[in-house]
Write a protein that binds this DNA or RNA. Structure first.
Lengths: 362, 362
DNA sequence: TTGAAAGCGCTAACAT
DNA sequence: ATGTTAGCGCTTTCAA
């Protein structure tokens, strides 16, 4: 693999310090300001000068230090934004990330992305890290319960946009999905199919989206006059395994639910695995909040309440840049709609008294 | 949503310029260097001074400008790295991203991530953008055919590590997967199940991984003395739709394959959709290169050659930091193994002469 | 049209 | 233990 030759441990290609504007100016025999003008495409430089400077810059492989420049620039921008997500590795977050990147790239802005793993302290640490790098704006999916710590940052005029979860303690632009309506719609869909024993399986109620989805579920039941049953309310389900265990237990108990509403991606997948392990995937109905790749290729295909993470990311990034371009209107809360996508699992009708593999429609 | 009051369009909370070390020094009534020492935890400051400076810094919400500092620092680091991927939104890339982030975070290093969409020009533009922000290192999954453009960057001593695809024109640390062995293993697996007409469906042969996987497929056939058939070689399949169409056509032609080797994630999914649309998912065997979420929940579950993107990202990041910490050994090529995960689709035995829904085992 | 000098926020080197 | 000065690479200001 080593094709470039080496002599006594010293690489054939010497490490050369990076060329500066001064170096380019010296080589071209001009003033440093002329180089600056050429590099930045400022007017008022003769064609001959431009040619001469560009030749020198090319020879030295000069790449201007953007951050050094912005130290003195009047409109001081780092041309970077910070993106704080649950995990860059999560499909929902990754879609937001990509959308943010696309909007930023149009403006020559680079994106720092980082993951909190839902740890409030990490959220703060990341914001501090981005802040000390003087990002022009922040897009944050909150992990902590309180975003008070952002106040100093806000006072400097740095735009902050919250995504997916509403902020607490600060008043900033926010891009959310209508979790309550989506959850209500999902539950109504199951009620319409004839279900009366519908379980709601969700994440920690301290997570705003989880509690809103739960509220939507409860609202739908109440509106339909269907009594709630605490045994059908699962909480604190954070990953696939926890969801699997909770659903498995639920279905093996007395008087199990005939339908499941799972309020989050990973919970949905855990539920599918539990249903399969009991052979109940065609008996017990399932509607999940949040779409996921290949949901349509499952057996049965999975009915979901789809969000549009790309739209969330795009709108959030647009808010950041609007603020940077001078928008001083009061903070806005933008609520994006959800969409119920029926694929099969949510249209299964209730199988009364069936614990496993049983029959008889309601 | 607007809870903070406004007066005549002027926010109640005035925008205050960010505090500088000088401001803190003035408020604390000390020299600027003392502030620097306290902020950076340097020794040789009395407890009383530390207390006084910290109070002033807190009062002004002082956050040091890291980039300004590194301008003068002897070991000049931005404490950031650039990550250039096909798309941050792709599960394989996102897993690499997360692993890089984790290694970087341990060192207080932030990650710029960006997507090329396989466009060579974008690859160059992104490297230039990161370069002008003086990233300490670069991790790149090549989209272009040639990485010569990185030479100036390399001359400055910036560590560059290539991931997933080998570099052309430069000699740097590289983290790859054993594509040839993996593809050969997948093909052998199908041969062992009795298949003789095995199609190979891949991406553009200009993509190194695609051509290596194809080579592995051909090698396996040659070793087994099975003649190749050009009609069974699909190329240039970039997305799910293209793969769907190619596989659909292939299976509807005369003398269709009894097994498929798909050399990439999206191609595998396109193939699954095509098989399903023809009702052949239980007749035609399938082994895909690259694992994907829920592959085990498909019907049939999908046999794959799994890569470990987390390991790729981790190892790549570790190489970058090893170089930054002074490792001057010749560039290394690190080849990570693949793993055949049998789940069902790859163990289907050949159904001779079957075009759709037919029977009779071989 | 061109360039010299000052200074952005910070650290290094050198006082005190 | 604390402070002063110069200077990182660039842009701004202002002069030529």
């Amino acid at each position: 693999m080593t094709t470039l030759s080496e002599f006594g441990g010293i690489a054939a290609t010497e490490i050369r310090a990076r060329a500066t504007m001064r170096d380019v100016a010296a080589l071209a025999g001009v003033g440093i300001k002329t180089v600056s003008r050429v590099v930045n495409g400022e007017p008022g430089v003769s064609a001959a000068m431009i040619e001469r400077v560009q030749r020198a810059a090319g020879e030295l492989n000069f790449i201007p230090d953007f951050t050094a420049g912005s130290l003195r620039r009047s409109v001081r921008r780092s041309n970077s934004v910070g993106l704080v997500l649950a995990s860059v590795d999560n499909p929902f977050c990754a879609a937001i990330h990509r959308a943010v990147e696309d909007v930023a790239a149009e403006r020559g802005v680079a994106v720092f992305a980082a993951s909190t793993d839902e740890q409030p302290q990490r959220e703060k640490d990341l914001v501090a890290a981005f802040s000390s790098r003087r990002v022009d704006g922040l897009i944050i999916s909150a992990s902590g319960v309180d975003q008070n710590y952002l106040n100093p940052e806000l006072q400097t005029g740095t735009p902050v946009v919250m995504v997916d979860r509403p902020p607490v303690g600060i008043d900033v632009d926010t891009v959310l999905v209508d979790n309550l309506a989506g959850a209500k719609g999902a539950t109504n869909h199951l009620l319409r199919a004839g279900h009366r024993r519908i379980a709601c399986l969700g994440d920690l109620p301290t997570i705003a989206t989880a509690s809103q989805r739960r509220a939507g579920y409860l609202r739908a039941l109440a509106d339909a006059g269907v009594p709630t049953d605490d045994r059908l309310l699962g909480e604190g389900l954070h990953d696939i395994d926890a969801a699997f265990r909770a659903v498995h237990r639920l279905l093996c108990e007395e008087d199990p639910p005939t339908a499941l509403f799972t309020s989050q991606n990973l919970v949905t997948i855990g539920a599918i695995r539990a249903l399969r392990s009991l052979g109940l995937q065609h008996e017990v109905a399932l509607v999940g909040f949040d779409d996921f790749p290949l949901a349509d290729l499952m057996d049965p295909a999975v009915t979901v309440v789809a969000q549009d993470p790309t739209a969330i990311g795009r709108v959030a990034a647009e808010r950041v840049f609007a603020r940077l371009e001078g928008d001083t209107a009061p903070p806005r809360q933008i609520v994006l709609p959800t969409q119920l996508i029926t694929r099969g699992s949510g249209e299964i009708r209730p199988h009364h008294g069936a614990t496993r593999g049983a029959a008889a429609d309601g």
